[in-house]
Amino acid sequence: MSNIGLIIEEKAADIGNFLVGRLLPFREKRAVGPFVFIDHMGPASLKEYQNLEVPPHPHIGLSTLTYLFEGSIQHKDSLGSDIEIKPGAVNWMTAGKGVVHSERTPEYLRSTEKNLHGFQIWVGLPKNLEQSEPTFHHTEAEDVPVWNEGDLQYKLIAGELFGRRSPVPVHSKLFFLEIKSQTAQKISIGRNLFGEVAMYVLEGNVTIEGNTFGGKQLLVAKNANLCEFEISENSTIYLFGGEPFEEERYIFWNFVNSDKEIIEKAKINWHEQNHEAFPLVVGDEEEFVPLPKSILNGKLSK
């Protein structure tokens, strides 16, 4: 019997100037471990007159993780953070009770041709931290643990695995792992995993129990401990996983929480531009993403 419990096809979602491939949430699988949202962003080629423009927008009850393969994003938030995200670095912002941020093409790239490619991820927070004070942490690429085992290269982008720990300050038991292979070989790492796990093939392909899979799919395992596959030469894959929460997490627009009433309050605060609940983004105060009317009028069901 196959250990693949679900295959999620990447589906297009519009985030402004270009489409992204949405992997989570999915109607049959709302989360994998604490991962509640995964977008594969790009690869996109932008002309000199095209730029990433995501104006200030709010979050609650989650941590955002941005990881780029190519390109650059200028992150600004209501905490005063103002930093350029470059390939290999990890941007980790914990919203807690409420934070606002914007994501744009850096000023020095706005009149040039450029590429953009990476992951945009939301990780749910433990219930006791959903109303915590917001925080921000940026990990440079050279500080992310990387090691080799034969022809395999491992990179632990976030979390803890193989007795190693990423410096990204996560709030629950999880892992976000990159594996690169120069040669075709069999990989059996299930004994090192825990909780739930999903795999995304960025380059090349993998063969699991006689079936071959390539890109634009998220493969969700039935049992993380049985994670075993054959990887083709010159392949890059990512594993997302960890311990799921006991309580269900509700997602409504940019808000994540285990309490529907907190989400309802956040909707109203953002619609009314309550700057005590959602402060302005420092250095990007002129614009904001309005709460969609369909979101405002759509009360969460009990």
Results as ranks from 00 to 15, higher is better:
residue 177 L to F: 01
residue 184 A to C: 09
residue 146 V to T: 15
residue 213 F to L: 07
residue 158 A to G: 12
residue 200 Y to W: 14
residue 155 K to L: 10
residue 195 G to Y: 00
residue 241 G to R: 04
residue 135 T to Q: 11
residue 97 K to L: 00
residue 194 F to G: 10
residue 228 E to D: 13
residue 180 K to F: 01
residue 205 N to A: 13
residue 199 M to N: 08
residue 103 E to N: 05
residue 227 C to T: 13
residue 218 L to F: 03
residue 232 S to E: 02
residue 227 C to K: 04
residue 120 Q to T: 14
residue 139 T to R: 13
residue 165 R to T: 07
residue 203 E to D: 12
residue 181 S to M: 09
residue 184 A to M: 06
residue 234 N to K: 15
residue 149 E to N: 13
residue 169 P to L: 00
residue 215 G to A: 14
residue 127 K to F: 08
residue 96 G to Y: 00
residue 169 P to N: 00
residue 178 E to G: 00
residue 149 E to V: 08
residue 136 F to S: 11
residue 172 S to A: 02
residue 140 E to H: 15
residue 140 E to R: 15
residue 162 F to R: 04
residue 134 P to I: 06
residue 98 G to M: 04
residue 178 E to P: 00
residue 100 V to K: 03
residue 190 G to A: 05
residue 241 G to V: 05
residue 95 A to I: 02
residue 148 N to Q: 15
residue 142 E to P: 01
residue 130 E to V: 05
residue 202 L to C: 00
residue 119 F to R: 10
residue 179 I to V: 10
residue 211 N to P: 12
residue 147 W to C: 12
residue 188 S to M: 11
residue 171 H to I: 03
residue 195 G to L: 08
residue 192 N to I: 00
residue 211 N to V: 14
residue 217 Q to I: 12
residue 97 K to G: 01
residue 189 I to E: 10
residue 208 I to V: 08
residue 182 Q to W: 03
residue 134 P to H: 07
residue 201 V to T: 08
residue 206 V to G: 09
residue 201 V to M: 07
residue 120 Q to E: 15
residue 167 P to D: 10
residue 110 R to S: 11
residue 152 L to P: 03
residue 225 N to A: 08
residue 137 H to N: 10
residue 121 I to A: 09
residue 197 V to H: 02
residue 195 G to H: 03
residue 106 P to H: 03
residue 106 P to S: 01
residue 134 P to E: 13
residue 138 H to I: 14
residue 225 N to T: 06
residue 106 P to A: 02
residue 135 T to V: 09
residue 180 K to Q: 07
residue 207 T to E: 05
residue 203 E to F: 07
residue 137 H to W: 01
residue 192 N to L: 04
residue 140 E to W: 15
residue 168 V to H: 10
residue 101 H to Y: 02
residue 130 E to K: 10
residue 138 H to E: 14
residue 181 S to R: 09
residue 127 K to H: 13
residue 213 F to M: 05
residue 136 F to I: 05
residue 146 V to H: 06
residue 115 N to Y: 07
residue 216 K to D: 12
residue 172 S to Q: 04
residue 191 R to N: 06
residue 136 F to N: 11
residue 118 G to N: 13
residue 140 E to K: 15
residue 225 N to P: 01
